[in-house]
Structure formats: C-alpha cells, structure tokens
Amino acid sequence: MPEPVSNIISQMPRLRLAALLLFFLGPALAVYSLFSIYPLVATMALSTYTSDPSGARHFIGIANFQALLGDALWSKPFWNAFRNNLIFFAVHMCVQNPIGIALAGLLSLPGLRLKGFYRTVMFLPTMLSVVIVGFSWNLILSPLWGVAAGALKTVCLGSLFAPWLGLESSALVTLSLISVWQFVGIPMMLIYAALLNIPDELIDAARVDGLGHFRIFLHIKLPLVLPTISLVSILTFVANFNAFDLIYSVKGALAGPNFATDILGTFFYRTFFGNQLQLGNPTMGAAVATIMFFIILVGLCLYLVLVQRRIRRYAF
C-alpha cells in the first residue's frame, strides 16, 4: 500500500515544500490576483475618491457611499435598480429553475428517444450572443413586424397582445423571461448531470415498490439533487446581480420606460460611463460597483450559513 500523501508532505523539507507550492499555485495565483483581486481592490480604492473638473482626484472617505444610500438624488435610482434586480432574480428563481428541473427530469426518463437532440436544442440559446438574443426577441415581440401578435391571433388570443417591451408594467418581466429563455439550459444541464449520478438500484427499488415515474422523481430523485439545485440557485443569484448586457442591448443605458428595467448593472454603467450629455463619474461608479460586490457577498454568506450547512449529502 502506498504511503499517504499527508505523510510525504510532513516529511518533506520546508523549503522544498514552499518551492513546490509556489510552482503549482503560483501561476494561477498570479493570474487571479492580476485580473480579479487587483481590479476589485482598485475599484474599492477608487470609490473613496472624487474628481474635480481638471481631472484631479481627491480622497473623500465614504462620502460617495453616503450619497448613494442617503441622498435622494442617488438613492432613489439606486433602490429602484435594486428592487428591479430583485424582481429580475425572483423571475429567474420562479421560472428558470423549476423549468430547468422539469426539463432535466424529462430528459432523464428511461426510454426517451432523441435525448441528445433535445439536450442540444435546449442548450443552444445559452451559447448565443446576448446581442442576437436581444435583437431576435425585439423583433419577435415587435408590434410592427413581430410574429408574436400574429401567432396569438391564430389561436384567437389576439386581444392579449400588447407592446410588452415598451410598457412600464411589463417591460421588466418580459426581459426577465427572455433571459430565462436564454439561460434555462444551465440549470437543466447541471441537474441532468446530477440525476444521472443517482444509482439505478434506488430507482429500481422504488419501482418494485410500485412507484410511477412522477412519484419516483418527486420522492427519490428530487431530494437527491437538492444540493445541485441550491448550487444552481446561488449561481443564478450571482449572475442576476451582475447582469447588464441584455437590458443594455434591448433598452439602452437609460433602461426605459421610466427606468422600469433599470437594474444594478445598467445603473452602474450609466454612472461610470455616462450617457449622452451625462458625463461619466468613475469614482461614483466605483462606489456602485463596490456596493454590488457587497450585495453579492452578503447573499453568498447568507447562503453558506443558512443553506449550504444544512444540506444533507448522500454518498452512494
């Protein structure tokens, strides 16, 4: 029997161990520090400054954050974007993930034909450029040339059609659903992979006990893939609170109508880079980015404390 790795390590000279660690971890650490940690720290540092018309920067401590959270000029659009972001996230959690789970459940049914075809087709939108997704859905839903109005009319539901992307009441939910359509493949694939890991003996035992496909899924498979579902949820959370591109490509940086589709990503972009006559404000933009980072951090911590630790994993 070979010696355990921990023994080898403890017997190794210290210097040699350090060199070895550096050799294996160094490259990744350097790349990660340069492209991830350094920008993050630089962003936080930048958020404590302000710039004057000549371009010079002055240290102002937490004044940017006080303005962002306390001054109605900044806090109103900020909380609006935050609220919209929560709705954006809620739609993903309530629509994208259940559909993803259901699709994975269907795909893992024994005896289903053309499995590979369905899997590819449902995953395709995820690989499309967001600009193409935005453009296509803009056309599909267009009241002028879109197929949505005609399609509804042929099933006698023409009266239900509205210019959804242009109405304050429906624009955000419509965009969220477009995003769901694009990304539903990811929860589907992750959960599908988890479902494949469930040993056949368990399913066979359930079948012998007289359970049908649906009840097997509900009582046997679903509890076993819960850890994956919670992983999918946290991935969705991080992606949604970093989202920006779909809204920007469909509605522009002003995220209309009346900021109904403004989420933290577009609010950040507008603040940092400006819009039309609004000049970019990099220091305030950095403050928005820092708050976004903390929102995601808090979300992740809550998840770790409240969810991750309580999940029971089954070893097969």
Binding site: L73, W74, G166, E168, L254, G256, P257, N258, F259, N275, Q276, L277, Q278
Partner: peptide, 28 residues
C-alpha cells in the same frame, strides 16, 4: 438642455428623454 443645464445630477437631458417618452405614452 445642452448648454450648462445638463451638468448636474439629475442629468437634465436624461430626465428630458424619460419624461418626454412618458408624456407621449400618456403616463405623465
């Protein structure tokens, strides 16, 4: 809205886009 008046926060030009669209939409 172009000279001097779009220098501050809230930005007048952005506001003008927003309210003009809302007025035409009948929302404001």
């Amino acid at each position: 809205s172009y000279q001097i008046l779009s220098r501050g926060t809230p930005n007048l030009e952005n506001e003008l886009w927003n309210v003009s669209a809302q007025v035409v939409n009948g929302k404001l």
